[in-house]
C-alpha cells in the first residue's frame, strides 16, 4: 500500500524570497530614522510654508495647531496599536468598537443631567477627570463583554462594535434633542473642539497624560512584544497577563478619550496608521512599531492639513479626507482577510 505523504515533504527554500515590499532591505532602525526625519520635515513644512502674516502670529497660531496634531497623532496611533496587541487582532480598533462614541454620549449625558450652567462652571480638570473615569468604566465593561468572556468571530465583533457605535451615537442625538438650544450650544462647543479651536487647558492635561503614559510604555514595551503572541503564550512566558491587560486597557481608553475630547471621533485613522506601521517598520517589536505608527500618524495628519490649507484652500474637511482613505483601507483589510 502506498502512503500519500506528499503534504509533509519539505520543499527546498525558495531562492528569491518574496518580500512584502520590493525595496532595498533596510533594518528596522534605519526605517525608523527615515520616518522620523520625514515626520520632522512635514512639521517644518507645515510651520514655514507660505507665511503671509507676521512670523510671530503665524508661529503662535500654527504652533498651537501643530501641538494639537502631534497630541492627536500620538494618542490615536498608540491607543490603536496597544489595543490591537491586547486583542490580538489587526482589524479591530477602539474606534470601530465604538469607544469614542461612548465618550460623546458621556459628555452629552453630563450636560443633560447637570445642565449647561453647572457644566460650564465645573473645573476643566475635574470635568475631564469625571468624563475619563466614566469612559474607563463603560469601555472596560464593553471590552469584558466582547473579548474576555467569549472568543467571538472577527465579523461578529466588528458588527457588534458598529451597532454599539450607532447606539451610543443615537442616544447622544436623542439627549441633544431633549436639551434646550442654549444648552446645546454649550455642548456643541465642547464636542466640536476641532483642530482650529482647542482649549489650552485641555492641551496641558493632554501633554501631561501623554508624558506619563510614554514613561510607562517605554518601561514595559518588551512585555507588549510578548503580549502580542496571545494570552496563553504571554502567561507561559511569565507575563502577568491580567494586570498588564487591565493597565493597557485603561491607557488605551484614556488616550481615546483624550483625542476625542480634542478633535472628536475619527474612526479609521488609527487603523490606517497602525497597519501602515506594521508594513513599513518590518519589525514585530513595539520599540519600533510604536514610534513608527506615531510618525505615520504625524506625516498623514500634518501632511494632509498642508495639502488642504495650501492647495485645496479648505474646500474640504480634514477629517473627511482621512476617513475616506482610512475607510477604503479598512475595506481592503477585511477583503484580504477573507481571501486568506
Amino acid at each position: 500500500m502506498q502512503v500519500d505523504n506528499t503534504a509533509n515533504i519539505e520543499l527546498p527554500e525558495p531562492i528569491n524570497k518574496r518580500r512584502l515590499l520590493p525595496i532595498i532591505k533596510l533594518t528596522a532602525n534605519h526605517r525608523l530614522c527615515l520616518a522620523v526625519l520625514l515626520a520632522l520635515a512635514t512639521c517644518l513644512l507645515y510651520m514655514s510654508w507660505n507665511v503671509t502674516a507676521s512670523w510671530e502670529f503665524t508661529l503662535e497660531f500654527r504652533g498651537k495647531k501643530l501641538l494639537t496634531f502631534l497630541i492627536v497623532a500620538i494618542a490615536i496611533s498608540t491607543a490603536t496599536l496597544l489595543f490591537q496587541t491586547l486583542s490580538n487582532n489587526r482589524i479591530i480598533t477602539p474606534a470601530i468598537i465604538g469607544f469614542d462614541s461612548l465618550y460623546i454620549l458621556i459628555q452629552t449625558a453630563l450636560v443633560f443631567f447637570l445642565g449647561a450652567m453647572q457644566y460650564t462652571q465645573l473645573n476643566v480638570y475635574l470635568k475631564w477627570g469625571i468624563e475619563i473615569s466614566l469612559l474607563v468604566l463603560g469601555a472596560s465593561f464593553l471590552f469584558q463583554c466582547l473579548f474576555v468572556k467569549k472568543r467571538h468571530s472577527l465579523y461578529l465583533l466588528i458588527l457588534i462594535g458598529v451597532v454599539f457605535g450607532v447606539l451610543f451615537h443615537s442616544l447622544s442625538a436623542l439627549l441633544m434633542r431633549l436639551i434646550n438650544p442654549s444648552e446645546f450650544t454649550v455642548l456643541q462647543d465642547s464636542l466640536f473642539a476641532s483642530f482650529n479651536a482647542v482649549d489650552p487647558h485641555l492641551l496641558l492635561i493632554s501633554t501631561l497624560v501623554i508624558g506619563c503614559i510614554g514613561i510607562f510604555v517605554s518601561k514595559v514595551h518588551h512585555q507588549y512584544d510578548v503580549l502580542a503572541l496571545g494570552e496563553a503564550m504571554a502567561i507561559n512566558l511569565g507575563i502577568n497577563h491580567a494586570r498588564l491587560s487591565r493597565v493597557t486597557l485603561i491607557i488605551v481608553i484614556t488616550l481615546i478619550g483624550l483625542s476625542t475630547s480634542l478633535v472628536g471621533p475619527v474612526t479609521f485613522f488609527g487603523l490606517l496608521v497602525v497597519n501602515l506601521a506594521y508594513i513599513v517598520s518590518a519589525s514585530h517589536l513595539h520599540r519600533h512599531l510604536i514610534p513608527m505608527a506615531i510618525c505615520c500618524a504625524i506625516i498623514i495628519l500634518v501632511g494632509s492639513d498642508v495639502l488642504l490649507q495650501h492647495f485645496l484652500h479648505y474646500n474640504s474637511k480634514l477629517s473627511i479626507i482621512i476617513e475616506f482613505v482610512g475607510g477604503i483601507f479598512f475595506l481592503l483589510l477585511i477583503l484580504r482577510n477573507k481571501i486568506r
Partner: peptide, 29 residues
C-alpha cells in the same frame, strides 16, 4: 513551560524571533 494545541500568532515573526521569545523569562527583552 507549556505549549498548547493551537498557536495562532498575528505578528510576522521569523523562527529565530519565536525561539528568542522562549528566552524571555531570562532576558526580559
Amino acid at each position: 513551560a507549556v505549549l498548547r494545541q493551537e498557536n495562532h500568532i498575528v505578528a510576522r515573526l521569523t523562527v529565530e524571533d519565536l525561539v528568542c521569545f522562549g528566552r524571555f523569562p531570562y532576558h526580559q527583552g
